[in-house]
Nucleic acid binder design. Structure first.
Length: 547
RNA sequence: GCCUUCGUAGCUCAGUUGGAUAGAGCAGCGGACUUCUAAUCCGCCGGUCGCGCGUUCGAGUCGCGCCGAGGGCACCA
């Protein structure tokens, strides 16, 4: 019996009590069932009596008593105790708890998935780094977190489009092109230009493709066209090697081609969505929490940058997305209000725009923060990180922390102490369970028999309980947009598995006969393998057969 | 000044939407492999949850005010 099933059973008990007239309260849709911190408090606990006591006008302990009598009658429930102010502590019999092992194996990759987001079309925009250089650590964090989040959404039934917005329209692209041109001409980096080894490399490659580029009519334009395309290629390749592939690479330039932005702005002007003041046209972003309204059309008649954002949202809506999520760095948190205001001006519900603000990744060297500067060429890139620790460790390290917290990356430390990375703890649990299965097979243990009542060891009770929490953890990760919950859960699961492994055996000792206990434990072993694999897949981390 | 994120063990961080005695890893100390992987496990040590009020049966979690750290506050893109 899973916590979900128990939750439903408790709801049914509440409804029954209402029907019999012993209770008068609105029965909630879901009853929260938790794993108590202390094992003395049973397998599962609920505080539902405390929550409903006031609304029902009843002493919580009395309400708990009504519930406990009904719960005891449910098959699989071993005992129900009332504790403290009205907690219900529930114990299941081993057979009821152990059935989960078989359920998980049979569900396979589908175990843990849900339908909370079924039918929802989500546009998830992340990374979106300017094509003026390689992806740095900040972008790498969003690549890992964003891709994982996309996988988590899909596991809840959503249709997800991973989108990358290329800012290839503005002045920073010109600076990039000027930097390439200057390099090719043997001149120093322009005042506001970009420097770094990658500039040298891109320049050299452009010259290789177009040897006569410097004598072209407009060499800077040629460098812009070829160099930017080359940078796109580099970025896409790095992300692909990182296990992140976008469905759509959206070019800002495409919004401006054919006067689309201008036409949309005219429409907004005439519909009264923008207002005119002091020679400029403004967006009412203060309605959505901004400090001040934002200029959309400057007094010189040109569109401000935000005009592109407005057109972009409109484009996304026209492509049919219910939910448009922007993953931005903390240095862009001021964009939240204007993006929501943009949606509102277009006549959309601002709730269709959701902005996730993630904190910064800092580079640390010998315990001292180091400023990363693209122009100075001191950036640490996605490729640097992968070269140092590999894709699995890099993705895991970036995904296991809440996006709300800053993270410090010390490249030297990561290189020296890779074994401290918890990813190995989780991966090892998977590899170990696979080894246990191989050995079991060699000893003649198969899954022909299953008797859940045999799973009585304390570590088995614990492992089953942790396994049972996976669907809820996954749903929470999707709901809160927090992939780190999956990583933390996997660490807990790996711990429960390692303890079980140390305390029991799947395969019989040599000379012993294969029993149903061995077979049943193989189910439990394989169930753990499955959940570890399912969770690691959501993080984009491999689940090795051997380590 | 305003907005925003953070402040939990020596260090890095969780904390299941307000529950019972606040957890894990690392670091430190002490144990466990003549049988499925010791990249593991067990034990010990370690806390005024930044500070103060408030909300209520109950606060690390919610509200307000301070203190401290990071990031923002353009008719730039």
């Amino acid at each position: 019996m899973t916590p979900e099933q128990l939750s439903h059973a408790i709801s049914a008990c509440l409804s029954d009590a209402v029907a019999s007239g012993e209770l008068s309260v609105e029965v909630p849709d879901t009853v929260r069932v938790e794993r108590p911190k202390s094992r003395e408090h049973g397998d599962w606990a609920t505080n539902i009596a405390l929550q409903l006591g006031k609304r029902a006008g009843m002493n919580p302990r009395e309400l708990a008593r009504l519930l406990s009598e009904r719960l005891r009658a449910i098959p699989g429930v071993d005992s129900v105790d009332i504790a403290g102010p009205g907690f219900l502590n529930i114990r299941l019999d081993a057979a009821a708890a152990g059935g989960l092992a078989r359920d998980i194996v049979q569900a396979g990759a589908a175990f843990g998935t849900g339908d909370a987001l079924a039918g929802t079309h989500i546009n998830l925009e992340f990374v979106s780094a300017n094509p003026t250089g390689p992806i740095h650590l900040g972008g790498t964090r969003w690549a890992a977190v964003g891709d994982s989040l996309a996988r988590i959404f899909q596991a809840q039934g959503a249709e997800v489009t991973r989108e990358y917005y290329f800012n290839d329209h503005g002045a920073q692209i010109d600076r990039f092109a000027r930097s390439l041109l200057a390099k090719a001409q043997g001149q120093p980096t322009p005042e506001d230009g970009y420097a770094g080894q990658y500039i040298d490399e891109i320049t050299a490659r452009v010259l290789e493709i177009e040897p006569d580029i410097l004598s072209a009519a407009d060499p800077q334009e040629r460098f812009r066209a070829v160099g930017v395309e080359m940078m796109f290629g580099e970025i896409k390749a790095s992300l692909h090697d990182f296990g992140v592939d976008f469905d759509v690479y959206f070019h800002e330039d495409s919004l401006h081609q054919g006067g689309k932005v201008e036409a949309l702005l005219e429409q907004l002007k005439s519909s009264g969505s923008l207002y005119f003041d002091a020679g400029a046209w403004w967006l009412r972003s203060t309605d959505h929490g901004d400090d001040k309204d934002r200029v959309v059309i400057k007094s010189d008649g040109n569109a401000a940058y935000i005009a592109g954002d407005i057109a972009y949202i409109q484009d996304k809506r026209e492509r049919g997305f219910d939910l448009n999520i922007y993953m931005l760095g903390a240095d862009h948190h001021g964009y939240v209000a204007r993006l929501k205001a943009a949606a509102a001006a277009l006549g959309h519900d601002p709730a269709c725009v959701e902005v996730m603000i993630g904190q910064m990744v800092n580079l640390v060297k010998d315990g001292v923060p180091v400023r990363m500067s693209k122009r100075a060429g001191t950036v640490v890139t996605l490729e640097d990180l992968v070269d140092a620790v590999g894709v699995d460790a890099a993705r895991y390290a970036l995904t296991r922390y809440s996006s709300d917290s800053n993270i410090d990356i010390d490249l030297d430390l990561l290189q020296q102490k890779t074994n401290d990375n918890p990813v190995f703890y989780v991966q090892y649990a998977h590899a170990r369970s696979r080894a246990a299965a191989r050995n079991a097979a060699a000893a003649g243990v198969d899954r022909s028999g299953f008797d859940a009542a045999l799973l009585t060891h304390a570590t088995e009770n614990e492992l089953l309980a942790v396994l049972a929490q996976y669907p809820h953890q996954l749903a929470g990760a999707a709901e809160h947009r927090e992939p780190h919950r999956v990583a933390r859960y996997l660490e807990t699961l790996a711990g429960a598995y390692h303890r079980w492994y140390g305390a029991t055996r799947v395969a019989p000792l040599s000379g012993e006969e294969v029993t149903d206990l061995n077979r049943t434990r193989l189910w439990l072993n394989d169930a753990t393998t499955q959940v570890l694999a399912n969770g690691l897949a959501l993080l984009g981390v491999s689940a090795p057969e051997k380590m």
